[in-house]
Design a protein around this nucleic acid. Structure first.
Length: 490
RNA sequence: CGGGAUGUAGCUUAGUCCGGUUAAAGUGCUGGUCUGGGGGACCAGAGAUCGGGAGUUCGAAUCUCCCCAUCCCGACCA
């Protein structure tokens, strides 16, 4: 009997939560808003992390590590930055506990109060720029291209597994440049790097663009972003790259001497992607049977399940699969033979399907006799019988095909759910169904806010390099030079 | 922080309104036998201070009060 799980149609948000548990990705911890990332979930994150790390290094960046704690005073050095984060900071006020006098356990020792409170980093601009002040003196020290893999804490009011947690894992790049132009180029380079990664590896199509002033990072002059459309029609911000101008250089007094010996403030960028990408991955490809993983980031690409009635059959089947394992290994394909005798085949089928393993092989006495193997595709949920000999070549090419087909499927979903709208009445009606809406906007904060209040939709981005198209703002009728992308977002 | 709901075995829940044997079931877990081509069957077992505290009562999972936690809807969300 197949266990009954909630479908996407019945309750999308419940489906998401159940899937995270069922695929063994993560679970809620006893700490509010925090999650435990389980080994399988972490393995997927590691695949993403490793690939991104390669790409950062290929583009000249180095990894470093800065402290978890930030002196409270640092945060307030950049005015808009503190405004953006102050409301969600965890604060360390004491450094010691002691036994309660009534024996009820440990209590905070009031004598151990910190002179200056420490903030648990919500992001590291301030502590990093405080170091950069000492690292940068001359144009010869630039550009400085640093990345950090870390955890950060943002005390969110409401949390969801992977999509918004109080503590999350991410990478944050922080670069310093001699010229404005170079810093902007870096910001854009990372935008394209992120888009390339999310599309090529996660098979998730993204829109590239810039944020409106209202949605911009606290302390940035320009925020570039990639936006993905989830299956339920909501948008998910998958990554951001910020042009920080000289804001942090001025706040932390970071100047360099140029070739003429003149002192200038340096130009900065910062950029990050987080474990939220896991949420994007889940909500882009998965179905009512569970997780669906693109081969390039699946921790396991091929699983083999033997079906047998006795030990001899098992041994014979395992011999075949072990030979295949070596061939696949040579082709760079990850493979696991699940010969665990405690689980029956049907259970294993369901299990690996839940976990999104792209290809499943099964071999039983019938196949053994005929030299065949059954191959099931996770993405299409189809299965076929193939000759066992030479199956490795087919598997190798099929993985590529699955990767492409997942991307195309997601792209098609986005295309059919992207609409041009010109009247606000239409917009208000259609936005309820979800999707991306390309509409004209007069460029004012007031209009943006009004739309958000009335429809809960926000401007996800002003498309990057979008062709100019004159039109009239759908709300105020004022002039507009190009369409922007509206959606309800996570 | 406002509105609503919930807390009973690892998990999902019944029992609570109307107090009364040893707190029940499914699933999961342990051992065993049969099995094995889509989440197996049977047998035996372990597993709960009924979220915490105080009170009412001969007697509390059940009634009263206080506290805590979680979830949903708002507000908030680089």
């Amino acid at each position: 009997m197949a266990q009954k799980f909630v479908t996407r149609k019945e309750d999308y948000s419940k489906w998401y939560n159940e899937l995270v548990y069922r695929a063994d990705l993560a679970e809620h911890s006893d700490v509010r808003g925090c999650m435990v990332i389980k080994p399988y979930g972490y393995a997927i994150w590691e695949k993403m992390k490793n690939q991104l790390d390669i790409m950062f290094k290929e583009t000249g960046h180095s990894n470093a590590y800065f402290p978890l704690f930030i002196p409270k005073s640092y945060l307030s050095k950049e005015a808009s930055h503190v405004d953006g984060f102050a409301k969600e900071c965890a604060v360390v006020t004491h450094y010691r506990l002691k036994n309660a006098e009534d024996g009820s356990g440990v209590v905070v020792d009031p004598d151990a109060k910190l002179e200056e409170e420490l903030i648990v980093r919500p992001t590291s601009e301030t502590i990093i720029w405080n170091s950069y002040k000492n690292w940068i003196q001359s144009y010869r020290d630039l550009p400085l291209l640093i990345n950090q893999w870390a955890n950060v804490v943002r005390w969110e009011m409401r949390t969801r597994l992977f999509l918004r947690t109080a503590e999350f894992l991410w990478q944050e790049g922080h670069t310093a440049h001699a010229t404005k132009q170079e810093a902007i180029e870096e910001t854009e380079k990372i935008l394209h790097l992120y888009a390339d990664f999310v599309e090529s590896y996660m098979a998730t199509p993204v829109l590239k663009g810039t944020k409106t002033e209202a949605e911009r990072f606290a302390g940035a002059e320009e925020t570039y972003c990639i936006e993905a459309l989830m299956q339920d029609g909501k948008a998910l911000q998958a990554g951001t790259s910020h042009f920080l101008a000289q804001n942090f250089a001025k706040a932390f007094d970071v100047k360099f001497a140029d070739k003429e010996g003149k002192l200038e403030y340096v130009w900065a960028t910062s950029w990050g992607v987080s474990t939220r990408l896991m949420g994007a991955l889940i909500m882009t490809h998965s179905d009512d049977q569970g997780l669906v993983l693109p081969p390039k980031i699946a921790p396991l690409q091929v699983v083999a399940i033997p079906i047998y009635k006795n030990e001899d059959q098992l041994n014979e089947i395992c011999k075949h699969f072990k030979a295949l394992e070596n061939k696949l290994k040579a082709l760079g394909v990850s493979f696991k033979l699940d010969d665990d005798d405690n689980r029956r085949p049907g259970w294993k089928f369901a299990e690996y399907e839940s976990k999104g393993v792209p290809i499943r092989l099964a071999m039983g006495p019938r196949d053994l006799e005929n030299g065949k193997v059954e191959l099931a595709r996770r993405d299409t949920r189809t299965k076929e019988i193939f000759d066992f000999n030479g199956i490795e070549t087919y598997i190798k090419s099929l993985l590529t095909e699955i990767q492409e087909s997942l991307f195309n499927r997601a792209l098609e979903h986005r295309t059919t759910n992207t609409h041009l709208v010109d009247s606000y009445e239409d917009f208000k009606k259609q936005i309820k169904k979800g999707g991306f809406f390309m509409a004209h906007w007069d460029g004012t904060k007031e209009t943006e806010l009004l739309i958000k209040e009335q429809t809960q939709a926000t401007i996800r981005c002003i498309p990057y390099n979008a062709p100019e198209e004159t039109g009239k703002c759908m709300v105020t009728g004022k002039e507009s030079k190009r369409r922007v992308v509206f959606a309800k977002a996570y």
